[in-house]
Structure formats: structure tokens, C-alpha cells
């Protein structure tokens, strides 16, 4: 699968999600099941560099979401 096609699938899948806006890297692997995890990881990180996606870090764990989607700061459970 072409890299651009993968990026398109990722963006479309994220846009369709309701509720949550940030996801574990493993959730991205599931979006592209036929591709090796390491390759998907590289593409996701490239999309962060291109400012399509952005990291959200709690300090111990990192989540990734569409840039600008959801809250940027720390949130409490239930918010």
C-alpha cells in the first residue's frame, strides 16, 4: 500500500471516530492491518512532523490524535 493511501485511511478513520480524539499507537496498527507495525509507526510519526497529527502525553504514556482535535490540556476523568 502506498504511503499516501495509508495517511488518507488514518485521517478518514480518525474523523469518523466519535467521542475519543486521542488514540494509542496500537490503535493505528489496527487501522492498517496488512502493514508491519514498525512501518505504520514510521508513517504516524511522519504525519506528526507534517502537523496532520499531534502527540498528547500524560508523561508516562503517549496518545496520538488529529492536530487540534479535543482538549490540549490535562483533563480529569469524566470531562
Amino acid at each position: 500500500m502506498e504511503k499516501e493511501e495509508v495517511k488518507k485511511i488514518i485521517v478518514e478513520t480518525l474523523k469518523k471516530k466519535k467521542g475519543k480524539t486521542k488514540f494509542y499507537l496500537k490503535d493505528y496498527y489496527k487501522m492498517i492491518p496488512d502493514m508491519k507495525a514498525r512501518q505504520v509507526k514510521n508513517i504516524v510519526n511522519e504525519m506528526v512532523k507534517e502537523e496532520i497529527l499531534e502527540y498528547w502525553s500524560s508523561g508516562s504514556t503517549t496518545l496520538i490524535g488529529l492536530k487540534g482535535a479535543g482538549k490540549a490540556h490535562a483533563t480529569e476523568e469524566g470531562e
Binding site: N45, Y55, W56, S57, G59, T62, H73, A74, T75, E76
Partner: peptide
């Protein structure tokens, strides 16, 4: 204190922990 957020330096996914 609350922790976590999108704060960081460009291209890096670590090294900064948001505190509010």
C-alpha cells in the same frame, strides 16, 4: 496539579511533561 497535554518541542514525542 494536573499533568499531561500536547506540549512539547516540534517533532519530539517526549522530554516535556505538561503541568497545570
Amino acid at each position: 496539579w494536573k499533568h499531561g497535554g500536547i506540549v512539547g518541542v516540534f517533532g519530539y514525542g517526549g522530554g516535556v511533561i505538561g503541568r497545570y
